[in-house]
Design a protein around this nucleic acid. Structure first.
Length: 257
DNA sequence: ATGGTTGCTTAGCAA
């Protein structure tokens, strides 16, 4: 059994205590993190090691930054994408853990449709598809986890009309994510929750969480061999409660042997 | 009610 989780912590400094508590409570085999907002040297690797986890870190000051925590030792670590683009933003890291290629991704938000940041988002998603194609095979045991900053369907959005054609829901970003999944990846959360109406992100503003005015932006997508092994998936909504939560809740998937 | 939050870094940006 292998429990793989993903969580956009929105600053690992601000979420240090919550992260350690969460690891203790849920004991995942793997936890992909996004939005660390620290450089590698400021990552709390010692505290994480003390609770039994290895850490592979691709950090960045102030913005972005991704990591993979794992009980088993990680191998074949890759940072960023293997392409010609000189991209200073730390948004992708991957490693092989227990024979499974695990990728932690923080897809650009895109800010506003039509902006430079939006163009970068679409290009980044296109590059990710090319990277998968170039580096890996759909027949590999592979799991892509992260804040993908796309709500795949209207039933992943509490108020789809309010978010229509936003950077999180625009047909262009939904298509770009579909192109990635067409490579050979299945949304394992959706596999276990076809009903919709379940969210992983709620804006800090406007009482969005108490009103459950959320979107499902954080995903675990897996190649067929892994999707077939996935026995359960959940969003840990409780982690969004209480004092000083991240605006994202963790997503957890369980894989049988 | 034309709003509201958080984090990083210090007044403005990003989400």
């Amino acid at each position: 059994m292998m429990k793989i989780a993903t969580w956009n912590v929105n600053s690992i400094r601000a979420r240090h205590e919550r992260l350690l508590a969460w690891l203790g409570k849920h004991a995942p085999d793997v936890l992909c993190l996004q939005e660390l907002k620290v450089t590698d040297d400021a990552f709390p690797g010692d505290a994480i090691q003390q609770v039994g986890y290895h850490a592979v870190v691709h950090g960045q000051k102030t913005y972005n930054g991704v990591a993979i925590l794992s009980r088993a030792e990680p191998a074949d670590v890759e940072r960023g994408m293997d392409d010609d683009v000189d991209d200073p933003q730390a948004r992708l890291v991957s490693a092989v853990i227990g024979g499974v290629r695990v990728i932690s991704a923080y897809v650009p938000n895109g800010q506003a449709v039509g902006s430079d940041k939006y163009a970068y988002k679409l290009d980044w998603l296109r590059r990710l598809r090319d990277h998968l194609n170039h580096r890996f095979s759909p027949s590999d045991p592979l799991v892509l986890c992260g804040d993908l900053n796309v709500a795949p369907d209207d039933d992943d959005v509490a108020h789809p009309d309010a978010w229509a054609d936003s950077v999180l829901c625009h047909p262009d970003v939904r298509d770009a994510l579909a192109v990635i999944c067409d490579w050979g990846l299945t949304d394992v959360f959706r596999q276990h929750h076809p009903e919709g109406g379940l969210y992983s992100w709620w804006d800090y503003r406007r009482l969005a969480f108490p009103k459950n005015d959320g979107l499902r932006l954080d995903h675990i997508v897996a190649t067929e061999t892994m999707a077939k092994r996935c026995t359960a998936a959940e969003i840990d909504r409780d982690e969004r409660k209480g004092s000083k939560p991240s605006d994202h809740a963790p997503v957890i998937a369980t894989f049988g042997d």
